[in-house]
Lab assay of single mutants.
Amino acid sequence: MSIQHFRVALIPFFAAFCLPVFAHPETLVKVKDAEDQLGARVGYIELDLNSGKILESFRPEERFPMMSTFKVLLCGAVLSRVDAGQEQLGRRIHYSQNDLVKYSPVTEKHLTDGMTVRELCSAAITMSDNTAANLLLTTIGGPKELTAFLHNMGDHVTRLDRWEPELNEAIPNDERDTTMPAAMATTLRKLLTGELLTLASRQQLIDWMEADKVAGPLLRSALPAGWFIADKSGASERGSRGIIAALGPDGKPSRIVVIYTTGSQATMDERNRQIAEIGASLIKHW
């Protein structure tokens, strides 16, 4: 058993032996400061991975655009179909130039040979490839079927209504393609630790998130040596930015963190910096 498999397999085991986890309101002070700095709403939640207890939250039940963070949920739905014998990670999917949409750094290189379902999930999560996400959405029946999958998990909040890139429109008060921090954190925890997916599929999902290559300026920039993080970021119109993550010290995840912001006029660099500073406060007061 690899170190990674050891880590995921023991998450339920550690729940019975973990020390009490204490919240630190200092992080919420930073979240509120980020709102002031960005001139935008910020949603935040910090969840204990083992118990599911909410440690801190700010606007946990307000809607925010999901942006590309939905791609983790999408690959969770794909893995659920794999577990049920309805899909194979090794199945190759062929597509054409007409299928390519904006920001497809991986799929645009494989027009001649296509990509496997496994490769598409990797591209969608680690590189946020939009065509990969659309191709995967097609395999499960489209955005409405992803919403149905989430409903069956008990998440009646999170919804996907459109495809890439239209889902990134982020119109104020538009509930399409949105979630709430509390709903996203709970759903992510179920995917990573619950019985919905097999152990192998849970491991695969967290491996893809751990290999994320496009979230460096966010929480990863504040991470001390030896800490673990598996994450997925997102960005969209109207100053929207977000990240969902499982992270913790000693090389294993122990908390879920979800951060969303929307409605800012700030630059992408400034949005990144504010999220990184929230992460730094979280780690300092861990």
Rank of each mutant, 00 (worst) to 15 (best):
Q4L: 12
R7G: 14
A9W: 14
L10R: 04
I11T: 11
P12T: 14
A15R: 01
L19P: 14
L19I: 15
H24D: 08
D36S: 14
D36E: 15
Q37H: 13
L38C: 06
G39Y: 07
R41M: 08
G43L: 01
L49F: 11
G52Y: 03
I54M: 11
L55N: 05
E56L: 06
E61C: 12
R63L: 06
M66V: 09
M67Y: 00
C75Y: 02
G76S: 10
V78I: 14
L79Y: 13
D83A: 04
A84R: 15
Q86K: 15
Q88D: 14
Q88F: 13
Q88M: 13
G90E: 13
R92A: 09
R92W: 08
Y95A: 01
E108S: 15
L111T: 13
R118Y: 14
E119R: 04
C121Y: 05
A124C: 09
A124V: 04
T126G: 10
S128R: 03
T131I: 03
A132E: 00
L135W: 00
L136A: 03
T139R: 09
I140V: 11
P143Q: 03
K144C: 11
T147R: 06
A148D: 10
A148V: 13
A148R: 15
N152F: 11
M153H: 09
V157I: 13
L160Q: 04
L160M: 08
E166S: 09
L167I: 10
N168Q: 04
E169Q: 11
I171G: 14
D174C: 04
R176C: 07
T178P: 01
T179Y: 00
M180Y: 09
P181K: 00
P181C: 05
A183D: 05
A185V: 04
L188F: 11
R189L: 10
K190N: 13
T193G: 10
A200Y: 10
A211K: 15
A211E: 13
D212K: 03
V214R: 07
V214Y: 06
A215P: 05
G216E: 10
S221W: 07
A222V: 15
A225E: 14
W227S: 02
K232A: 02
E237K: 06
E237L: 09
R238S: 14
G239E: 05
R241T: 02
I243C: 06
I244N: 01
I244G: 00
A246Y: 09
D250F: 10
G251E: 08
P253Q: 06
R255Q: 00
V257C: 07
V257I: 13
S264R: 06
Q265I: 12
T267N: 13
M268A: 07
D269W: 09
D269I: 11
D269L: 10
E270G: 06
A280N: 14
S281T: 14
H285C: 07
H285P: 03
